[in-house]
Simulated assay, not measured.
Amino acid sequence: MRAIAFRRCVAVLALAASAPLCAQTPAAPPPVPAHSAAECQVWARELSFARSVADHDAAAFAAHLRDGAAFGASRVEPTRGRAAIAERWAGIVEGKAVRLEWYPTRVTIGGAQDVAWSSGPSLFEDRAPDAKQRYAIGAFHSVWHRDADGVWRVLFDDGVAPRPATEAEALAFRRDRPTACPQG
């Protein structure tokens, strides 16, 4: 989930460290539906957004945000605006304490052809060498808007709080990452 602020990510990972670990077999990923060409454009943009964090590229991260974007959209006080979101996410983009990865598994465009919804899993990795709970898995939900220049940018973002995850689940997250948008 991309919408959790850096400090909250660290707090969640600290809480996860106190949770008991269970040996779990990772569930098979759900089937991925076919997407239209326009939905695949948003899929590619979502991957580009995730890559901006993986590459620690703050400018590229900010370029994926709409001017009036709201992150943590379901919260009473979401983070609003490109500059405020970029500032709040600076630690996550930097990636020193927490590594965040995500990818889409669903993209939907409805009647408004300039609005899209995307969702998928997210993986948090506590980068501290002595981390008791290294991984946590969550999910994200984003609403994209195609601006007048034809570029898709995130308008709203939120997600599901991460839960503790095993190393096997983290490996499955990475293994099950789609390599291309499934077009219909």
Rank of each mutant, 00 (worst) to 15 (best):
V32N: 08
G72H: 02
A62M: 03
P178R: 02
R7Y: 01
P104K: 04
S122F: 00
R146Q: 15
Q113F: 14
F6I: 06
Y135M: 07
W89S: 07
I92C: 09
A73V: 03
R106H: 13
F71L: 00
G120A: 08
E46I: 02
S36L: 02
L123P: 09
G111K: 06
I137S: 04
G111R: 08
P104I: 01
Q133L: 09
P33W: 09
V151Y: 02
A11T: 10
A38M: 10
L15S: 13
F61V: 01
K96N: 07
T179Y: 10
A84F: 01
L21F: 11
R174W: 06
V143W: 05
D55M: 11
P29V: 09
A172Y: 07
A86K: 00
Q183E: 15
Q183H: 07
P20E: 09
A128R: 08
V10P: 05
E101V: 03
R51V: 07
P104C: 06
G138V: 03
C22S: 14
A50L: 06
I4Y: 11
T166I: 03
A34T: 10
E101Q: 11
A63H: 06
A16S: 13
R2Q: 09
S119H: 10
D158I: 00
V76L: 15
G138K: 00
E167Y: 06
W144F: 12
S18R: 13
D55V: 04
A165K: 02
A19S: 14
R177H: 13
A14Q: 08
R127I: 05
F156D: 04
W144K: 06
L171K: 15
V42T: 02
P164L: 10
G95P: 06
R177T: 12
C40I: 08
F124V: 05
L47G: 12
R2T: 04
L13G: 03
L100V: 05
G120I: 01
H35G: 08
V154C: 03
A116D: 03
G91R: 00
W89Q: 08
R51A: 15
F71M: 01
V151L: 10
M1A: 15
D149S: 05
R51T: 11
A11Y: 02
V12E: 13
C9T: 09
L65I: 02
P164C: 05
D67N: 05
F140R: 03
F6S: 13
P182L: 05
E167Q: 12
A63K: 05
R80T: 00
V107T: 06
W144G: 05
G120Q: 04
C22L: 12
A59P: 06
M1D: 15
A161H: 07
A19I: 10
D158S: 15
S119G: 11
A63L: 07
R8K: 14
D130E: 13
A148H: 10
A139Y: 01
S119D: 07
P30W: 07
A37G: 07
C181W: 07
A23D: 15
C22K: 14
D176H: 10
A37E: 08
A54K: 04
A27M: 10
S18N: 09
L15I: 01
Q133I: 05
R163Y: 11
V143E: 06
V42A: 04
P26D: 12
V160F: 04
A60D: 10
